[in-house]
Nucleic acid binder design. Structure first.
Ligand SMILES: [Zn+2]
Ligand SMILES: [Zn+2]
Ligand SMILES: [Zn+2]
Ligand SMILES: [Zn+2]
Ligand SMILES: [Zn+2]
Ligand SMILES: [Zn+2]
Length: 340
DNA sequence: GAGTTTGAAACT
DNA sequence: CAGTTTCAAACTC
């Protein structure tokens, strides 16, 4: 198992350059076929495993087979595309943030990964590092797989076309929308059940969704709200930072508490310093409160001014509480739970 | 991890 | 084409 994995890595690094770069036809969700006339035949060869003579390992070759002047989509081309991508689409590392663009393993159990239910198959990829059971989406079942591709294309000639239009090079946002549209009924198109929402695009008139909250105007409003929240969050945090003197500041109030003059820790009592009471936890708790306040106000159709007012009020409350606690000259003043 | 919800794909 | 079933992922607890 492990040995085979290593060997496949070797194959990947040896041969991918024979194919055109995948970036030409990678798109969200699905692959589009490269603009090429050449049809390749994929050959499977059995060869001894490099580190284990008994075990068979696979190597794949691409051989020019024919030329098509039409460029018409057929299952052989899909086949080739799949192989290209199986080489070029990076496997999803076991754990990593921002998995965008990386193939994520499927978990199919009943489709043999030969129906569009399977994301790997639907993306024109071979299953690799998947958790599927009884998987036939690999070169061991080349014929069956080709038949399945052909079937899928018969049912829907667009089956392997990208569902979301590719943003053309120069034109931004041109038609980066769902081509067929969704048919959501209960998600308001606000959960990843919705293909539009999942692709981070707005629903359009192509969609036949009911009670949609993923229209273009919905998205704009949401973005504005988020940016307002973020800016207020940053403002709050920076205000607290300035107040604590952790910022190099030219303001009088900050320089009054400047730490520069005192070289030694003992020279001035830490308890007289703002930063002693405005530790990271306190700042974080305060920020959390402010964000929570923002969230509350967000629901009541808030003009942005009202929002800022409320947040400022909450900020004043926080500062007041912090000062109260700092005046209790106890040993670990700031360690008490401030917001209970 | 188990159980539920969801909507695309498949089927009739 | 419409109605139903199947399926795997998204989600919930
Ligand atoms: Zn699968
Ligand atoms: Zn898979
Ligand atoms: Zn599979
Ligand atoms: Zn939707
Ligand atoms: Zn939609
Ligand atoms: Zn919608």
């Amino acid at each position: 198992m492990i040995e085979q994995d290593i060997y496949l890595e070797e194959v990947e690094s040896e041969e991918p350059s024979q194919f055109s770069s995948s970036t030409d036809f990678l798109a969200y969700g699905r692959s589009s076929l490269p603009a090429t006339n050449t049809i390749y035949r994929i050959e499977k060869e059995n060869s001894a495993h490099p580190s284990n003579g008994k075990q068979e390992a696979l190597t794949y070759k691409n051989l020019p087979l024919a030329s098509s002047s039409t460029g018409q989509q057929n299952y052989e081309m899909v086949h080739r595309t799949a192989y290209q991508q199986s080489l070029s689409v990076p496997r999803r590392p076991s754990k990593k943030k921002s998995n965008l663009g990386l193939k994520k393993p499927c978990n199919c159990t009943k489709s043999m990964c030969l129906k569009l239910y399977c994301d790997c198959f639907a993306n024109g990829e071979f299953c690799r590092d998947c958790n599927c059971k009884d998987c036939h989406n690999n070169m061991d079942y080349e014929a069956e797989r080709s038949r399945a591709i052909k079937q899928s294309l018969e049912r829907n000639p667009q089956a392997f076309q990208p569902k979301i239009g590719v943003a053309p090079k120069g034109q931004l946002e041109a038609e980066r929308l769902h081509q067929k549209g969704c048919h959501c009924k209960k998600s308001s198109c606000l959960k990843n059940y919705c293909e539009c929402y999942e692709a981070k695009v707005a629903c359009t008139d192509r969609c036949k969704c009911t009670s949609c909250r993923n229209t273009e105007s919905d998205r704009i409003a949401k973005a504005q709200l988020a940016s307002a929240r973020e800016s207020s969050r940053v403002t709050s945090a920076s205000l607290l930072s300035v107040a604590s003197g952790s910022c190099i500041s030219t303001t009088a109030s900050a320089s009054r508490f400047s730490d520069e003059e005192s070289d030694s820790d003992e020279r001035s009592d830490p308890k007289t310093r703002p930063w002693f009471y405005l530790r990271d936890e306190v700042i974080e708790a305060t920020t959390t409160c402010l964000v929570a306040q923002a969230d509350e106000l967000e629901n009541s159709d808030s003009a942005e001014e009202i929002l800022e007012h409320g947040i400022l009020h909450e900020f004043a409350n926080a500062i007041r509480k912090i000062i109260e606690h700092s005046q209790m000259a106890g040993l670990d003043v700031a360690q008490q739970d401030l917001f209970h």
